[in-house]
Computed example of a mutant assay.
Amino acid sequence: MPRPTWDNLDADRRERVLHAAMAEFGRHGYSGGSLNVIAREAGVAKGSLFQYFDDKFDFFAHVAEQASLGIYAVMQPYLEKADTPFLEHFTGLVEVWIDYMHTHPLERGITAATTMELDPQVRTAVREPVHRLYAQGLRPLLEQAQRDGELAADADIDALLSLLILLLPHLALAPFEPGLDSALALHGTNAATRRRNAHRLVTTLFAGAAA
């Protein structure tokens, strides 16, 4: 958690630090991210960062949390059950998700940093709150589809949720980073092809749970 000095920082300076941290951690991850670079890009002294946070890990965890909350706020309206059929609604949600990641490279970088962090303690600490947000947004949508008869009564919601927590970070990254999906053409293609192949993944995931 940030120290009170962080909350007392003026909004513009706090935003500069967050922006610089997202860029650096997004490029190099937690282990490779440099506090010297973050401080220089933000226009603050490196020592100031330790007035705001206990250590590098505390700083990284806060940056990851803020990025996740920002993404969740954008996606939340699309997590509400719509009048359209569930599968159509969910594939539309995935389109919005991919388009958002396309136009928000900083958030995409932090998604990569939290998803692919090598240190198991750091990975666990930053991914658990992110996964809780996924569950918070997706579980009600799945349960409502089940109540509406669009998913089978015996569909395993927990298993579907687990698979979606694997799929969505993949779809956030694979269209924009080479080498993450060798089976489907997600990277190096146009938006229509990306969407079509993302739909194939979503359709296949839900095929066994359809009513």
Rank of each mutant, 00 (worst) to 15 (best):
L201N: 02
P175G: 03
I157Q: 09
I110E: 15
L151G: 07
A113F: 07
R108V: 03
A112D: 15
L186Y: 14
D154P: 09
A185S: 12
R147C: 00
T193Y: 05
E107K: 13
P140D: 08
L163E: 10
T193S: 10
P105G: 06
A153Q: 13
F176R: 04
L118N: 01
A155R: 14
G149Q: 08
P129N: 08
L167Y: 06
R195E: 06
F176D: 02
A191M: 08
A159E: 14
L160M: 12
P175F: 10
Q144R: 14
G149A: 08
L118V: 11
R194M: 04
P120E: 10
T124V: 00
V130F: 05
L201P: 01
Q144S: 07
R127M: 10
L171M: 09
A172D: 07
A135F: 00
S182M: 10
Q136S: 10
H102A: 15
E177A: 06
H187F: 08
A145F: 03
G179P: 07
A191R: 15
L184D: 05
T114D: 02
A185I: 00
A191E: 12
P178S: 13
E128V: 00
L173C: 07
H199L: 06
R132L: 12
R147Q: 13
L141P: 07
L201H: 04
P169K: 06
G109T: 02
R132G: 11
L106Q: 13
A135C: 02
V202P: 06
D119K: 11
L133G: 00
G179I: 05
I98W: 09
L106I: 08
D154K: 10
M101R: 14
A152H: 12
L166S: 12
V126E: 01
R108F: 13
N197A: 03
R139Y: 03
L138F: 14
V130C: 00
W97Q: 07
L164G: 04
E128N: 05
G109Q: 07
E150W: 10
D148H: 11
R200L: 13
L160I: 14
A135G: 13
D99W: 06
Q136T: 11
L173T: 04
A198G: 04
T193H: 03
A159S: 11
E150V: 09
R147P: 00
V96W: 14
A135K: 11
A159M: 10
P169F: 05
H187W: 06
G149L: 11
A198E: 05
Q121M: 13
E117N: 09
R196D: 14
L163T: 04
A155E: 11
L138Q: 04
T111D: 13
D119I: 14
L168S: 06
T103M: 12
P175Q: 10
T124C: 00
Q144K: 14
H199E: 13
Q136P: 00
D156W: 01
N197G: 02
P169V: 00
L118Y: 06
H187M: 04
L163D: 10
E117I: 09
V202R: 03
R127Y: 02
D148Y: 07
L168D: 09
D119G: 10
H104A: 11
Q146W: 05
I165V: 10
L142R: 10
R139D: 01
A155N: 12
T114A: 15
L142W: 07
V126C: 09
L151R: 07
L151V: 02
S182I: 13
T111C: 14
Y134C: 02
E117C: 11
